[in-house]
Amino acid sequence: MALTDEAIAKIRSMIQSGELPPGSRLPSEPQLASQMGLSRSGVREAVKVLESARVLDVRRGDGTYVTSLAPGCCWRASALRSNCCRTTPCSR
């Protein structure tokens, strides 16, 4: 599994488990990378993918927040990387 896919899966798991509920702020990039045992670059790329899929909201100078998505929106890492949720939600 690619580092970005692994980071996406771990962030997804944190959201689904309630560790990162909707509206919550993610830890800083270095903290999140350390917590997940991954590189900062892998975490950074995962955040970009999740932001483009509207799972995360990156607010420059403020932090990164979990959005209030309906359950079941494109959660597979491969689907998120292809940005399938960008225009319409899917049932994957």
Rank of each mutant, 00 (worst) to 15 (best):
T64Y: 02
L20H: 01
P22T: 01
E51A: 14
T64E: 00
L32P: 07
G61A: 08
A70N: 03
R40K: 15
V58M: 00
P30E: 07
R86D: 03
L26A: 04
V58N: 06
A9N: 13
L80Q: 06
R25F: 02
S52E: 13
S41L: 11
L80S: 02
P22W: 05
M36R: 01
L69G: 04
V55H: 07
V47F: 03
Q35V: 00
V66H: 01
T4C: 06
V43G: 05
M14D: 12
L20Q: 00
D57K: 14
E45L: 10
P22L: 04
R86A: 15
V49R: 09
R54Q: 10
P22E: 03
G42I: 03
S82W: 00
R40I: 09
S52L: 11
A77I: 04
C74H: 12
V49E: 08
P21E: 02
A2L: 10
V58I: 05
L80I: 04
C84P: 00
V43L: 13
T4M: 12
G23E: 08
A77G: 05
R86N: 10
R12P: 00
T64W: 01
S91D: 13
T4F: 05
L20D: 01
K48N: 14
P89L: 11
D5P: 00
G42K: 08
S91R: 14
A79V: 15
S39K: 13
Q31D: 15
G18W: 09
I11F: 07
